[in-house]
């Protein structure tokens, strides 16, 4: 078990390092960042000043190591646009985004797990058809459009929920639905497919041959095996959701890290952008690592692997 965790940890660290290089390098891929910052019309002198001010005149590896060293300590430099420490801006808003992400994944799991299990027990039943229909329709609705439709219905026409802002818990209801429904179809399909697969397996037949009650066969023997791939997917989806929060938070003007990402990208605020890409990636890496550990606990075969 310890060996398994250590191996996964090293893998995660290597991925994290590579991601950090990419998020740092992104800024240089489009050309000289000093020119990008100074603007198209800037004179050579202005560009030179910016280059020195931000340290762009140093060799790129030195800049990277410097940036990474500070980033590890939670310091992402000063925002080019807002002129504030990037970390202050991000960490004051991250809470909103993480709350939204957790609400959304819970929402998605609460819908997809029961529906996936029930439709697997009775394939081709009415419930199964409904579930598959919801999945197919859900996958085709663009989330920003869905968000706008909800605003039209619940805020404008019915006046039940606030259309924007992040002042009260009501502000989180629509964003949770929009972000959560996005992960629901995939989770539901996987639960259903995994469950169907497990229910036709030899060990379920053994369990039935033992004379166990159907409820026990289902909950003790089938669910645990079927849920293992779902855990991995949920972690991946959780990571995607933080990325997806950009769209959702922008639609609902929810002042989280996603909204900040949109603002900073629109305003060419390179340092904030870099930091956010890195932080969102780290969340993904941590989630998938935790999912690996959880799965190792669920499935003893993984522990010795």
């Amino acid at each position: 078990m310890v060996r398994f965790i250590l191996t996964k940890l090293v893998m995660a660290a290597m991925v994290a390092l590579t991601v950090s290089i990419i998020s740092f390098g992104l800024v240089y891929m489009a050309g000289d960042p000093a020119i990008a910052l100074a603007g198209e019309t800037a004179t050579d002198e202005e560009i030179a000043v910016i280059r020195e001010q931000y340290g762009f005149d140093r060799p790129i590896p030195v800049q990277y190591l410097d940036w990474l060293g500070s980033a590890v300590r939670g310091d992402f430099g000063i925002s080019y646009y807002y002129n504030m420490p990037v970390s202050d801006m991000i960490f004051s808003r991250l809470g909103t985004t993480v709350t939204l992400g957790l609400c959304a994944i819970s929402f998605a799991l609460l819908i997809s797990l029961p529906m996936g299990v029930l439709s697997a027990i009775k394939p081709n039943s009415l419930l199964d058809r409904v579930a598959v229909f919801i999945a197919v329709v859900g996958e085709a609705i663009p989330s920003f459009w869905f968000g706008l439709l909800l605003i039209v219905l619940f805020s404008i026409n019915l006046g039940w929920l606030p259309a924007s802002g992040s002042d009260s818990w009501q502000s989180f209801i629509m964003p949770t639905i929009v972000l959560g429904y996005y992960a629901t179809p995939a989770l539901m399909r996987l639960t259903r497919a995994g469950m169907i697969d497990v229910l036709s397996s030899d060990y379920i037949r053994t369990a039935k041959a033992k004379g166990l009650r159907p409820r026990k066969v289902l909950f003790k023997h089938a669910l645990r095996n079927a849920v293992i791939p779902v855990v991995s997917l949920a972690a991946v989806q959780m990571g995607f959701m933080l990325g997806g929060s950009i769209v959702t938070e922008t639609v609902f003007a929810l002042h989280g890290a996603g909204f900040l990402a949109w603002q900073s990208i629109s305003r060419n605020d390179l340092s904030t952008m870099q930091a956010l890409i890195l932080i969102f990636s780290m969340f993904y890496i941590v989630f998938t690592f935790l999912a690996d550990v959880l799965n190792a606990w669920l499935d003893p075969r993984l522990r010795s692997g």
Binding site: V19, I22, L26, G239, F240, G243, G244, I246, S281, T288
Partner: peptide, 17 residues
Amino acid sequence: VRLALPAILVALACVSL
């Protein structure tokens, strides 16, 4: 590595750059 990168964010960044 690819999965760890938030697709929308990276795409937005590229388009803006």
